[in-house]
């Protein structure tokens, strides 16, 4: 069971969190301008990296904040957690 650092609440057991997939997937500003393939890329395709991976987690049983985690998908080691910046620049990247 992972020990995940919530940027606000501190280190908590994995059971308090829910997983949100890859971080940094930005919703296109003008979906209608995209081809089916481009839209599908946003919708379905993920980098699915081996190694350091940035992903979103939600502290579901805690402060309900979404935040970023950098986790190694091979060793499961968590390098760190970070708040998602506010404002449009944030994008969970």
């Amino acid at each position: 069971m992972f020990l995940i650092q919530c940027p606000w609440c501190g280190e908590r057991a994995e059971t308090e969190f829910s997983y949100g997939g890859e971080a940094g997937i930005v919703r296109p500003l003008e979906p209608d301008a995209l081809s089916d393939a481009e839209w599908a890329d946003y919708l379905f395709n993920r980098t699915n990296l081996r190694g350091a991976y940035k992903e979103l987690w939600n502290h579901a049983q805690g402060c309900r904040r979404w935040f970023g985690v950098e986790r190694d998908t091979v060793t499961y080691k968590i390098e760190g957690s970070y708040e998602l910046p506010s404002g449009r620049a944030g994008k969970g990247a």
């Binding site: 930005v26 919703r27 979103l56 939600n58 309900r64 904040r65 979404w66 449009r88 994008k91 969970g92």
Partner: peptide, 9 residues
């Protein structure tokens, strides 16, 4: 909350 916090803060 996810949309508010991650995409449209």
């Amino acid at each position: 909350e996810r949309w508010l916090q991650t995409e449209w803060p």
